[in-house]
Amino acid sequence: MTKGIIFDIKELAVFDGPGIRTTVFLKGCPLRCRWCHNPEGLSAAPQLMVSLGSCTHCGRCDEICPSPEHCITCGKCVPVCPLHLRRIAGTPWTAQDLADRLLRDKEILGMSGGGVTFSGGEPTLQGTFLLEVLPLLRGMHRAIETCAYCDSALFTAILAELDYVIMDLKLADPAAHRQWTGVDNGLILKNLRILEDSGLPYRIRVPLIPGVTDTPENLNGIAALLDGSRHLEQVELLPYHRTAGAKYEMVSRVYDPRFDETVSPRGDLSPFAKRGIPASVL
């Protein structure tokens, strides 16, 4: 059995699909969006997270560390921190254990027409694990929040086990997509067509990054890509918040957005409105 690496399970998620949902965050992402607000979701491996804000530098963690040069995520420093500021992000779960955990709330989630959503990171990066756990959750409403950057055969197989999809579209232009996310969007757009053809209801989310994705050209380009979709429920524009960089220091990364964070993103809905696509700013 494959083990999934999960960095959070969030109850009462209200923005991740129909009804009240539990969202499972799978670790690892093939993209490197400069605005990513979940840096602990980037690497596929478990990693140490330290909240430095209230650290008193008591030194207990240093005393116990067996590998000061290079963190081996042994977790020994976690329980010794008197302020409980350290944790390992990324816990291995078997599909069965995870399914048992989620099925426990099947009834209460079902009351609101909700269910479970797999997010990340990029959940399809752990596609094998997803294909193990999703069938165990049949009978629950199952959704995914994905950038759709994955092998199309795998994507198709995953869609077959889902009731709902939330898909990110960041940039319509391939070159810009490469520049800001590190990968080409060809595969993403191919999977978008697969998604549309699957007949599953879906929602498209566009992060509004000032000067990057919120430009008229980009929003127009994305709207054009979605023109004529039959199963698209709506488009949601997610304005960039300056809190995005909050967790970088916790995972020893440097937040380097390379766009002007101080500018408020523009949420122009007209490119969608004129094509009759329901859209809103979240």
Binding site: H37, S51, G53, S54, T243, A246
Partner: peptide, 27 residues
């Protein structure tokens, strides 16, 4: 008094965090 509010969750944008874990500027 962060020690009294460990349980305080803030949904910052598309993610939730423990308020006391955020750096001051984000708080």
């Amino acid at each position: 008094h962060p020690e009294n509010h460990r349980n305080l969750i803030v949904r910052v944008w598309g993610w939730s965090g423990y308020f006391v874990e955020l750096d001051e500027c984000y708080q």
